[in-house]
Computed example of a mutant assay.
Amino acid sequence: MRKRFLPALLTAVSLIASAAPAKATAETPDTGFYSAPGPHSTVKLRGGPDHTFYYPDDLAVGTRYPILLWGNGTGATPDSYDSLLHHLASWGIVVAAANTKNSGSGSEMLSGGRFLIEENAREGSPFHDALDPAKIGASGHSQGGGGTIAAGSDPLVTVTAPVQPGPQGNVRALHGPSLFIAGQKDTTVPPIYVRSRYRYADDVAAVFAEIRNSDHYFSNGGGKHLKGALTAWFRYWLAGDQRAGTLFFGPRTSCGLCRDKASWSAVERNAKARQIR
């Protein structure tokens, strides 16, 4: 029998209050605005097909929050990314993080998305009629980044953001926009490898962004920049947040990541991405 979100089946629940986000500064868009906490308090809970879910605590019928599938790095669990996943949920994104230490196939990630679609239709579920099954993204780190690319070939997923991705998945099978994130000082998945994967993704709008001074584990402030970039990327594509799009698109002189050289050591956009305004 598949697990449902009944009290007896919940293995962990937590509530985290989030401060209101900083005021936007339209003149200088950067990831700083989106690296601040969003307006929602968040809930963390385990259930479903061996997943950990992070979501706003004010889910209500008809609100239609987007879904993000998360894949962990090799040997890691969602707890390793707890701050990031709570952060995304604070911005109105329901995160399904598979409790697997080997997420490269993308299959466990996709099972979380399918479960949430079922829960959205099930009366009595905390997610009932509160999700948008047409707005599903995927992201993950390292092996989970490879799993993100693998999951991104499924029609369920409309947008992806592989972070320092491993070799799994075929970027030419992606059918939606993709943000490839590298760390300038990453020796586990070097930036040159991430850039090569990005350059093969020429059938979709793709962006390559390298976090200045960051290693594979987001040292030297890399975690803050990762939070901001992922939040903005998915807010734009899944929630229609037009300001978030200014971080990635438009003229290079106004593109937020392109201008923020203190945080990003390299930013590239392929031909399809440069056409987005």
Rank of each mutant, 00 (worst) to 15 (best):
P177R: 04
D154V: 09
Q143A: 13
G245T: 15
S80R: 02
D215S: 13
L68M: 06
D260L: 05
Q242W: 05
G32V: 00
K272Y: 11
M1C: 12
G256E: 11
E268A: 00
F234V: 11
G48L: 06
A239P: 14
H128W: 15
G73S: 10
S142Y: 03
S125T: 12
G47F: 02
A201L: 11
G223H: 01
G73E: 11
A244D: 04
G147F: 10
A262H: 03
L15D: 00
N220T: 08
R235Y: 06
E268D: 10
Y54R: 04
G137Y: 03
L110C: 08
S196K: 14
S35M: 02
L59Y: 05
H87T: 10
P165Q: 08
A229R: 02
V94I: 11
L116Y: 03
K44D: 06
V163D: 00
I93K: 02
G112V: 07
E27V: 11
A232H: 03
V189A: 09
Y34W: 15
V267G: 12
D186E: 08
M109T: 05
I93A: 04
G221R: 00
S214P: 01
P21M: 01
V189Y: 07
A209C: 13
K261P: 06
G222Y: 03
A151I: 09
D129V: 04
I136F: 03
L9I: 01
A24V: 14
A24E: 15
A26L: 15
A60C: 12
T77L: 14
E27N: 14
W233F: 07
V194T: 15
G183L: 03
Y34C: 07
L238F: 06
W91N: 07
F53W: 10
R252Y: 07
L257Q: 06
G73Q: 12
T31D: 06
D30F: 00
P165S: 10
A89G: 09
P126Q: 13
S214C: 05
P167H: 02
P167E: 02
S35A: 07
L69I: 13
A36C: 05
A89L: 06
R122P: 09
L6Y: 07
S139M: 15
Y65N: 14
S142F: 04
S90Q: 06
G221I: 04
C255Y: 03
E108I: 01
K272G: 01
I117A: 08
H141V: 08
A209R: 08
S103P: 05
A271V: 15
L174S: 07
P165H: 03
C258V: 08
